[in-house]
Amino acid sequence: MGTIKTLNKWANAHTYYPLDAVRVALGVFLFIKGIHFMSNTQILMDLFTPIQNLAGGMITVHYVAPAHFIGGMLIAFGLLTRWAIIAQLPILIGAIMINFVGEMHVGNLVVATATLMVCIFFIFYGSGKHSADYYFKMQQ
């Protein structure tokens, strides 16, 4: 717990509007991806064709869209940002690995890798000073 407080103090002392804009953009991107997967389930099923015979394939399909949808909303508002990003990590790692198991799509690989890197940054940085987490912490 002390490490998280130390990271939060550092992040609050070094907060900048562009980093908050990147966090909001990440959340909006994941939210839109969640909506895209919810409205086009066949695209999501096509992505999972290389691993459809593995155990838990259908569970994975039902986890991806709601996790992007809800997690993107939480990240955009800066509410429970680290927890929402931790929920995104298995999806993003799977998105990178699917390119090597199935057909390689360089564009999807680049987007998934960039999103993973930004998520890893925000796990350490946190939600920042201009977020719902900071607002609720100051209300206590």
Rank of each mutant, 00 (worst) to 15 (best):
L54G: 11
I96M: 07
H62K: 01
M117N: 00
D46N: 15
L92S: 06
G128Y: 08
G107V: 03
P18R: 01
G102P: 09
A11H: 03
Q88I: 01
V118Q: 04
A55R: 06
V61E: 12
H105I: 09
H105S: 12
S127L: 10
L92A: 01
T3Y: 05
Q139M: 15
L30K: 07
Q42W: 01
T113Q: 06
A114Q: 02
G107R: 02
G72P: 10
G71P: 12
T60R: 06
I93Y: 04
L19T: 06
F124S: 10
F124I: 07
V24E: 12
C119F: 00
T115I: 00
M117L: 14
G78W: 13
V64C: 06
Y134S: 14
M1P: 10
R82I: 06
A95E: 01
F29S: 13
K137S: 12
N40S: 14
I43E: 11
G126Y: 09
I35A: 11
P50T: 09
A67W: 01
V101S: 08
L47Q: 08
V22H: 02
M138Q: 13
Y125M: 04
F124E: 00
A95S: 13
H14F: 09
Q42F: 10
A55F: 14
K9T: 09
T15L: 01
R82N: 06
A65Q: 03
F124N: 03
N53S: 15
F100G: 13
I91Y: 02
L109S: 04
V28E: 07
K137N: 05
F136D: 01
L89R: 04
Q88Y: 05
Y135F: 14
I43S: 05
I91K: 06
A95D: 00
F122S: 05
I59W: 06
L116C: 07
H130I: 12
T3S: 07
V64Y: 04
G27C: 11
K5T: 08
V24M: 15
S39T: 14
F124T: 04
Y17L: 15
P90Y: 02
I43K: 11
F48A: 10
I35K: 00
Q52N: 09
L30S: 07
F121D: 03
F29P: 02
H36I: 00
V101H: 05
I32L: 12
I96T: 00
